[in-house]
């Protein structure tokens, strides 16, 4: 009985972000405020554990339907989030670097203020920015888990009005490191 109790006591509670950890690939449609398709996005997302929380690495290839045609662009981003004083809310965190000049961003200076939150099966990432002309933008990335991957719903709001969106689907894939891969 005692060993069983001890074993139970050592079971670590799962962090709310752990179900989202993994590698995903997928595709999405970019939409205008009126709901018209304005482009295609090929998505590559890795969500992995990081100090105090988790990190999201993302590569997005933007094209009009054929990524072998000129005009294709590729964007990548990597950010980490660590737990905050508010339960369920993770703040953007920065790696400790001896030469870093700043550890926090200042929204009034124009830096984006970013945070994440988990609500049920959804991982929400927010990015708030104050523009030079006094307008403000809030970007929301909602990634919702299902049996085989994630659905993505991105919205960009300018002064509280939606001005563009992205809707897509990603499947969970095996992440293989292979030096011989061509």
């Amino acid at each position: 009985m005692l060993p069983a109790l001890a074993a139970t006591a050592t079971v670590r509670a799962q962090e709310p972000y752990e179900p989202f950890l993994g590698t995903y690939v997928g595709r999405a449609q970019a939409l205008s405020a009126e709901g018209e398709v304005t482009g295609i996005r090929d998505l590559d997302v890795i969500i992995r554990p990081a100090e105090g929380g988790f990190g999201i690495e993302s590569i997005t290839v933007n094209h009009d339907g054929d990524r072998l045609e000129p005009g294709v662009s590729r964007r990548s981003s990597a950010m980490t989030f660590a737990g905050s004083e508010i339960d369920g809310v993770y703040r953007r965190s920065f790696a400790r670097d001896l030469f870093a000049t700043r550890s926090e961003l200042d929204p009034i200076a124009g830096d984006p203020l970013q945070w994440a939150r988990i609500v049920g099966d959804s991982l929400l990432v927010y990015s708030f920015v104050l523009n030079d002309d006094g307008t403000y933008e809030l970007h929301t990335y909602r990634r919702t888990l299902d049996d085989t991957g994630l659905t993505l719903a991105f919205t960009s709001e300018l002064n509280g009005r939606m001005n563009r969106a992205v809707e897509g689907r990603l499947i969970r894939v095996e992440d293989v490191m292979d030096d011989l891969n061509p």
Partner: peptide
């Protein structure tokens, strides 16, 4: 007045992630 043109900032050391409100003016 903040260094950025048009912007004003509070001098309250508030932290959004400790439940404090983040204020700005333009």
């Amino acid at each position: 007045r903040a260094a950025r043109p048009g912007y004003y900032q509070p001098d309250d050391g508030a932290d959004l992630f400790e439940g404090d409100p983040q204020y700005w003016a333009f």
